[in-house]
Structure formats: structure tokens, C-alpha cells
Amino acid sequence: MLKIKRFALCVRGAAACVVACVLAAGCKDLVTRDGPSGASPGGLDLLFKVPVDRADNAFVPATDGQRLYADVNRRIEAFDLSTGARLWSYLRPLGGPSSLVARDGRVFFAGDTAVALDAASGRELWRHVLPSPAGLGESAGDSDAYYVGMKDHRVYALRATDGALLWSRDLGPDWPFGGVVRGMTVSGDTVYAAVEHDTGINGYIGTGDLFALDRRTGAVHWVFRNGDGTRLDIYQSAGRVAGRLLLLTANWENEYIALDRLTGTEVWRAHGEDPYFGMDEAPEVQGDRAYFASQDQYAYALDLATGRRLWRARVASGASNVAPCGSRLLVQDLGLSVVDLGSGRMLGRAYDSSTNESLHTDFVVVGNRAYVFGITHLYGFECPT
């Protein structure tokens, strides 16, 4: 996608009203351009292909390793990881989830209201009405708290057990043009908030401001600013922790940034091709490599320590999400492109518009299995190791 207009955060999703059209264990079909049967692109096995009502309106899939969760047509749904069968459904409040966070037996999400559900049953545990919408970014959580960033550049830490407010922090009280928290990441004693800071009216220019906050108090440890405010150098997703590094995507500029997350200093910066948008999320990490893809129709592997490009693979169209799975890199480019993780060799493609299907969510990976939603089905794949 060329830079014709400003790109809004694309949040990813999952399924609704699942019809149990599940393939029996031990009878795994192979993935092809036409779906099950025939030769397999990239050697993936199709575990299941489950029809889902309004799968085209599914977003933000997540997992705790026990179940798959997603927002489907304003319902938070839980699915079985082995069969794709729907386990429970919860009608969420208006406002849309910022993302789903699943851990410690709870599923958290936030739009106009932050909510915690019991992960096994879908029963509501608590809700907390927010002062500003939180549906424009990714939230995060740990055993103590659920961390939510809002449209008015504020962050809330809500107690995981009952939703009580532990602390709040306004990250831009003196910003004349405002800003939006696009993503939260928690690691150790630090919460990282990636903020789109508008420096001009209507948000036509801005900086990406990354705040490192104390997890227990919200105190600011350091701030890293991307850009000088004369262009649109914004963040539109949460950072990803990789050892001492925090990886970020400056979506508008198709740039990928690695920070020392203890000091807030830049370690390296990588670029996709101009003049295209970057990926909707921070690069994925496996071992000593980072992987990303962008609207420039390429997938990339970088050396994690230096940002040096190791390979570049042409995919079928502009890409939004990637996922290492076994020995493969899965690329969501409105279909499924499968790339060899080590060499970058293109191995195959499936599930695109030529088959009346199109993948449109992020991948969820558990071990060597990957899950993704198309416009009509929920898919589960097994990747070769």
C-alpha cells in the first residue's frame, strides 16, 4: 500500500457462531491454494477448518496456551485449540476491545470499559468504566495488573483480581494537539507505553513517544522520541521485548527500531522499501533473529543484535502480520504465504481471493501450531519443525 492516506491501527481477530465442521484427528488434509487436498505449500498440515459466522468481523486473537480467544462481531469467543470448536461466548460492552490479554485464568479486554472474564467459562469477573476510549491500541497484563492505554494519552493500571485502579499516568498533559496510546508492553518491573504524539492539528504530523513506566507506581523512568515532529514518525502498535531489546515499528515510515529497554537508547534501525507502510505490529522474534513484513510486498529476517538484513523474500502482496512457526515463517498478506525461516525461500501460498477466502487477522502460535481467521473460517495449521 502506497502512502496515500494516514494508516489507522488494524487490530486483528477471530470468529463467531462456530459450526462444528471439524476434521477428525489423524485425517489431516494438506493446505493448498484450493484448501484441503493436493500438494502442500510449505509442508503445512491443516488441523481444522471451521466455518464461523461473521468471521470477517473477527479481531484480536490471543491465547493462554489453553484456548484461543477472539472478538467476533462484538462477542468475545473462546475456541478449542485442537478442534476449533467454540467453547463459550460473551457479549461485550460497546466500544470495541483494544486487544485481548489472556493469562492466569482470566481474559482481559478494554474499549469504553475494561472487563475481565473467567477464561474457562466466559463469566464476567469485573468491569471498570474508563474515562476515555481504549479501543485504539494494545493492552497488556501480568499477574498483578491489567495495563490499558487510552485515546487521551493516559495509562491505567487496574488490579487483575477486581479491576480496582492501582495508578494512572497522563503521558502528555501539555501536548496541545493530543495523542493516543497505541500499545502497552510489560516486562519485569517496567511497563512500556508506545504513544502516537500529534504535533499538528488533525494529526497530520507527529512523533512516536515510548515511555518506560514503573510497573507498581507509573513513575516515568525514561522517554524515547522517534522523529522531530515535522513528519509523521508515529508508533501504531506495542513494542516487543527481546532480551534487553525492545522492538518497535514506525508504521508510517516502514521503519523498525530496537531500543535498549533499560536505558532508552537506540541500538539499531532497519528499513523496508519506500514509499510503503510498515507492518501493523512490532517484529516477531525467534532465537537470534527478528522477522517482519510490510506493505512493500517483502518479508525480512534481521540479525537481532545488529539489525543487519539476513534475507528478504518477495510475497504475493502487502503484508500485515508474520509469525515464526516451526521451521516456517507465516505471512498474512490477505492470503497465507509460507517462507522458509532459515533461508527466506518462498515455499508456497494458499487461502487468497482466488479461493473466495482471505486471511485478515494476526496469527496465534502455540508450539508448532498456528491459528488464523479468514473471512469465512477459523483455521488451525501444524508447521514442520
Rank of each mutant, 00 (worst) to 15 (best):
M1F: 14
I4K: 14
I4P: 00
F7T: 06
G13M: 07
A14T: 05
C17M: 09
V19G: 09
A25E: 04
A25N: 01
C27A: 15
C27Y: 02
D34Q: 13
S37C: 09
S37P: 00
S40P: 00
P41I: 15
P41C: 10
P41A: 09
G42S: 12
L46Y: 10
F48P: 04
P51A: 14
R54M: 05
A55K: 05
A58D: 13
F59G: 03
F59I: 06
R67Q: 07
V72A: 15
E77L: 06
L81C: 08
T83W: 14
G84E: 12
A85D: 09
L87H: 02
P93Q: 10
G95Q: 11
G95D: 02
G96E: 12
R103V: 03
G105L: 14
R106D: 01
V107K: 01
V107H: 11
F109H: 13
F109N: 02
A110Y: 00
G111M: 09
G111V: 14
T113R: 15
L117R: 12
A120L: 13
G122T: 08
R123V: 06
R127W: 04
H128K: 12
L130K: 10
A134R: 11
G137C: 11
E138F: 15
E138A: 11
A140P: 05
D142R: 08
S143V: 15
Y147W: 07
V148W: 13
G149H: 07
K151S: 11
H153T: 01
L158H: 12
W167C: 01
W167A: 07
D170I: 10
D174L: 12
P176I: 12
G178T: 09
G179V: 05
V180W: 04
T185I: 03
T185W: 04
S187H: 13
E196F: 03
E196Y: 02
H197A: 09
T199C: 06
T199G: 01
G200N: 09
G203M: 15
Y204G: 05
I205Y: 07
T207H: 00
D209A: 08
L210A: 03
L210F: 03
F211Q: 03
A212C: 08
V220Y: 12
W222N: 01
W222A: 07
V223I: 12
F224R: 14
R225Y: 03
G229T: 02
R231N: 08
D233N: 07
D233K: 02
Q236P: 00
A242G: 02
A242T: 01
R244V: 00
R244L: 02
L247I: 08
T249Q: 12
N254I: 10
I257L: 14
L259C: 13
L259Q: 01
F277C: 10
F277R: 04
D280R: 12
E284M: 00
Q286E: 08
Q286C: 00
Y291G: 00
F292V: 15
A293V: 00
A293C: 13
A293E: 02
S294R: 05
S294F: 03
D296T: 07
L302M: 08
A313R: 01
R314M: 12
R314K: 15
A323E: 12
A323Y: 01
R328V: 08
Q332S: 13
G335V: 13
L336F: 06
V338E: 07
G342I: 01
S343C: 09
S343G: 06
Y351T: 13
S354A: 15
S354M: 09
T355P: 01
T355G: 15
F363Q: 06
V366L: 04
Y371S: 06
L378Q: 03
L378H: 08
F381N: 05
T385D: 10
